[in-house]
Amino acid sequence: MKNLFKHHETYVLLVIIVFSAIITTINPNFLTLENFFDLAKSYSFIGILAVGVTIVLISGGIDISFTAVATVGEYVMAVMVIKYGGNMFTAVLLVAVVGIALGMINAVLIYFFNIPTIITTIATLNIYYGILIVISGGKWIYALPDWFRNFADIRLFTLRTAQGLEYGLSIITATWFAIIIIAWIILRYTKLGRGIYAMGGSMNAARRAGFNIFGIQMFVYSFMGLMAGIAGLVQALLVQTVAPNSIVGKELDVIAAVVLGGASLAGGSGTLFGTILGVTLIAIMGNGLTLMRVSSFWYDVFIGLVIIISVGFSAYQRREKVKRTILVEGE
């Protein structure tokens, strides 16, 4: 039991339970499977990005450029499938190639020129986004193919509410879950994954131990790029429009969700479970406020308070831990 309270995740989980209880007493519609499936689907976009951000943070870096990568990915994909046709497979391939390529550029700059990751990725955010807007002229894309429209409605299984409304596990949500499982396996059970933790814990020691630092960084930023690409695709599926200016600007929101889940910006710590909880917390707060008929104006105030209290609390805990004592005779 004592061990349990050493983990940041426990506290986040408690907060989630308390929030859920409050929301449910005010509006019982919150605690329905239908609402949950719905919520999971609409937060897959942030959820997928958060997986990438978690891995970057564990490796001791930070990535700001992912919103631009996601935008570029979905835009290129939309333009190509409209112009040349294709299917879901080509769409995934396109966003993956774009995402990984842009992520690799980040990794190369970070590794070879030793530029702080935050600076590199702020710069590339502006570069990727600027070029996209200039080339696209900022035009929105609406005329997505039918198969693209239909794909978004696929459910792995379907249930029915008492009123006869259909709901179920969307393929989009399933994709998010699959990504979490894959990322978890990589982090937990592969040499590469342990290398990411090791590098985040101590870059020097990792280098001396013989880890391939360039390889690991390449993976971390390409994986972030891949996640961004897929998230871009998911966003396009969810809203069925591709708007170049709808994603950029949300980078700090995603990072906030990950940080709420306990990943440290100093690197080396953080878990996917924590990240899921962070995203969940953000999701039920947004959803809960709506269900409790609180004006959406209050959304940021609540999120801000939760962030400040959460980071303040864990900082306070860390400070208590540092206080040292020695054994004094006669005490």
């Binding site: 101590s202 020691a205 080396g268």
Partner: peptide, 11 residues
């Protein structure tokens, strides 16, 4: 074994 031990504090 170097003076800084080259261990990983988070593992």
């Amino acid at each position: 074994i170097y003076q800084d031990l080259s261990l990983f504090p988070n593992l």
